[in-house]
Simulated scan of single mutants.
Amino acid sequence: MDVLDAIILGVIQGLTEFLPVSSSGHLELGKAILGDSTVPEESLLFTVVLHFATALSTVVVFRKDIIDLFKGLFQFQWNEETQFCTKIVLSMIPAVIIGLFFEEQLESLFGGNILLVGMMLIITALLLWLADRAKDTQKPVSFSNAFTIGIAQAIAMLPGISRSGATISTSVLLGNDKSKAARFSFLMVVPLIFGKIAKDILGGDLTVESGNFTTLFIGFVAAFVSGLVACTWMIKLVKKSKLSWFAIYCLIVGIIAVGFGYYSA
């Protein structure tokens, strides 16, 4: 993997992690465009670094919220911050179950399955279109909502289903406030990403020798900077109910991917 590939994939990850267009789906499309020889299978460390960069950009954007959450937790009371963190834990359960017990089956869906990516992008487009037409409310995310949104997050582990798109859309369709839905969606994934990185490191799946420091650093910076922009932009777009723009984009890309995947099969 050369420097240009690292920049391209870093920007793709940074933008699509927060914009509701599926980062996993676009990374698969990026691999198909760049070619397998350009993006080798041993790039697991590079992929993990990109996810770490976007998780870190989330922490930066929501640093005040995260600090307030920790302050509330250390009061050891059943306050608003403790309740919010409990909802985050509830939302993680479905994805943790999938990750622990169906990791191999899930990984088998990755690796250039463009037809699947295209179909899932079309489903993402439908979710975004429905959410864009939902009425805006002031309703916060409830405990039952948190678990349901967590199921959406687990389904979004499929390549082509947007995690932010699925979780925000599900939250909004449940009647939650759009701003609160976006905030919850972005914060709920941070513990999962850090947990996955810790699991891979402790399990010996990642080694320093498996990556080039130059491409790792450049990819990290590209993903982090583009992630900051995308996260901030997405919050504003959700407030203005502009999800239909991304629904159209996902539909077009999905149809093209389905066509390409069908005729190249």
Rank of each mutant, 00 (worst) to 15 (best):
Lys135Cys: 09
Gly25Trp: 06
Leu130Phe: 13
Ala265Gln: 12
Pro94Lys: 02
Asp65Val: 07
Ile252His: 04
Val61Phe: 12
Val189Gln: 01
Ser226Asn: 10
Arg163Ser: 05
Gly204Leu: 10
Leu19Cys: 10
Leu50Ser: 11
Thr148Asn: 09
Val208Glu: 02
Asp5Ile: 12
Gly254Ala: 09
Val89Gln: 00
Gln83Tyr: 06
Ala182Ile: 04
Glu41Tyr: 08
Gln105Thr: 11
Leu206Glu: 04
Val60Asn: 08
Ser24Asp: 12
Ile256Val: 15
Ile161Leu: 15
Phe213Leu: 15
Gln83Asp: 13
Cys85Gly: 02
Ile235Tyr: 03
Gly35His: 12
Thr54Lys: 00
Val61Thr: 01
Gln75Tyr: 06
Leu173Ala: 06
Gly261His: 08
Leu34Ser: 14
Ser22Ile: 12
His51Tyr: 09
Pro40Arg: 12
Leu202Lys: 12
Ser169Asn: 08
Leu128Val: 09
Gly150Val: 01
Val258Gln: 10
Thr16Cys: 07
Ile8Asn: 10
Ile93Phe: 07
Thr214Asp: 10
Arg163Ile: 02
Pro20Thr: 11
Ala166Val: 03
Leu69Gln: 07
Leu90Ala: 13
Ala222Leu: 08
Val39Asp: 02
Met234Asn: 05
Leu187His: 03
Thr215Ala: 05
Ile98Gln: 06
Val48Asn: 08
Thr16Tyr: 14
Gly10Phe: 02
Phe184Met: 05
Tyr249Phe: 13
Val208Tyr: 11
Met188Ala: 10
Lys87Phe: 05
Gly175Ser: 06
Leu106Lys: 11
Phe76Lys: 15
Ser210Asp: 15
Pro20Trp: 01
Phe18Gly: 00
Ala32Thr: 13
Pro40Tyr: 11
Leu243Lys: 01
Ile235Val: 15
Ala95Trp: 02
Gln13Trp: 01
Ile8Cys: 14
Gly10Cys: 12
Ala154Lys: 02
Ala125Gly: 14
Val96Ala: 12
Val141Ile: 14
Gln83Ser: 12
Tyr263Lys: 14
Leu106Pro: 00
Asn145Trp: 09
Gly99Gln: 02
Glu107Val: 10
Ser23Val: 10
Gln83Leu: 09
Ala166Asn: 06
Ile201Glu: 09
Thr207Lys: 15
Leu128Tyr: 05
Lys196Leu: 09
Phe74Lys: 14
Leu90Thr: 08
Phe46Tyr: 14
Asp132Trp: 06
Ser23Thr: 12
Pro94Leu: 03
Ile235Pro: 04
Phe220Pro: 00
Tyr249Gly: 07
Leu130Lys: 14
Tyr249Arg: 07
Ala32Pro: 03
Gly99Asp: 07
Ser264Phe: 12
Lys236Gln: 11
Phe52His: 05
Leu158Met: 14
Val59Ala: 12
Ala6Ile: 06
Ser144Met: 15
Leu100Gly: 00
Val21Ser: 09
Gln77Asn: 14
Phe220Thr: 05
Gly165Ala: 08
